[in-house]
């Protein structure tokens, strides 16, 4: 009956509480905090000038540009797909729906290396349609289109997976009401559906973008590692690292780590402020 209950008499003793918290904090410290700290310390280990040089030299600039370009293509593509897929899945009832959802989730269960491999086997020199592409002088693998394709593949489910449960929870009643009031299909989408899903969409975009800019395995397989041309930021980090140019490698890496932290903060704010307008469960 009381508005708030304390749990004290049957909770753990303060000693055990503190012990458990400390144990958990040690785990967090070693696996999460220190790796981030080490990135920034190593990045600035030779001073700010070195850092600036490492991130502004032409190859690094090219890598940054390519990463932005790839994300600028992959993210909108997956937004269009994600919205279309969740509209079809959440607003209509049809046979095979759960199978379709499984297929959409598929790229999450596939190793990034395989995500790259399949495009090499499809479009590469010895690939399924590789010879035909060669004849027509179209380069996909070991070029920007391949990198975009591999990135689209690995980020494929992010938006859809956020929107499907959200839109399923919201149901189709509001849209049906809008239709009954005479709104056209597009009017219904823009004025009813989109305002309802905007925070969920942003959440999906955020995660999709973080992965798109950071993907390494899949992109590594299809890129061919041509410096200044097919190097994304993560690949550039690898090259610098393998050349034992650690400060430069960590400098570029620190940009990516910064992006990750910004993503986490933005994600946290969304969950805190608009949690009820996001999909019910987040993993």
């Amino acid at each position: 009956m009381a508005p708030k209950r304390t749990f004290a008499p049957i909770a753990e003793s303060p000693k055990i509480r503190i012990g458990l918290v400390l144990l958990s904090l040690i785990y967090i410290l070693f696996f999460l905090v220190l790796p981030v700290v080490v990135v920034f310390t190593e990045a600035f280990s030779r001073g700010f000038a070195h850092y600036l040089e490492a991130v502004t030299e032409p190859d690094a600039q090219a890598a940054i540009k390519l990463t932005l370009l790839v994300a600028a293509i992959a993210v909108p593509a997956n937004v269009v797909f994600g919205v279309a897929a969740s509209w079809a899945i959440a607003k209509f009832d049809f046979v095979g729906k759960s199978f379709l959802i499984t297929l959409i989730d598929l790229p999450f269960s596939v190793s990034p290396v395989i995500s790259g491999l399949i495009y090499v086997l499809m479009f590469g020199g010895q690939g399924l349609i590789g010879p035909w592409l060669d004849e027509h002088d179209i380069q996909i693998v070991y070029a920007v289109p391949g990198i975009v394709l591999a990135t689209v593949f690995v980020t494929f489910p992010f938006v859809a997976r956020e929107l499907i449960p959200l839109m399923q929870e919201q149901g189709a009643e509001e849209e049906e009401a809008a239709r009954s009031l005479g709104a056209s299909g597009w009017q219904t989408f823009w004025r009813v559906t989109l305002p309802n899903i905007k925070w969920g969409l942003l959440y999906g975009v955020l995660l999709c973008n973080a992965r798109a800019m950071g993907e390494f395995g899949a992109v590594s397989v299809v890129s061919g590692h041509i410096r200044g041309f097919t190097n994304t930021m993560p690949l550039h980090v690898e090259i610098l690292y393998n050349e034992y140019n650690l400060p430069a490698a960590f400098a570029v890496a620190s940009l990516l780590a910064f992006l990750a932290l910004v993503t986490l903060v933005a994600k946290g704010i969304l969950e805190l402020r608009y949690g009820h307008e996001l999909a019910p469960v987040h993993h």
């Binding site: 009956m1 508005p3 209950r5 304390t6 008499p9």
Partner: peptide
């Protein structure tokens, strides 16, 4: 009535509340 403290009293007797 609810909020009269009866459940809290019961829980105190049981030792579920200090």
């Amino acid at each position: 009535p609810s909020g009269s403290g009866k459940t809290t009293l019961l829980r105190i007797i049981a030792g579920l509340e200090h």
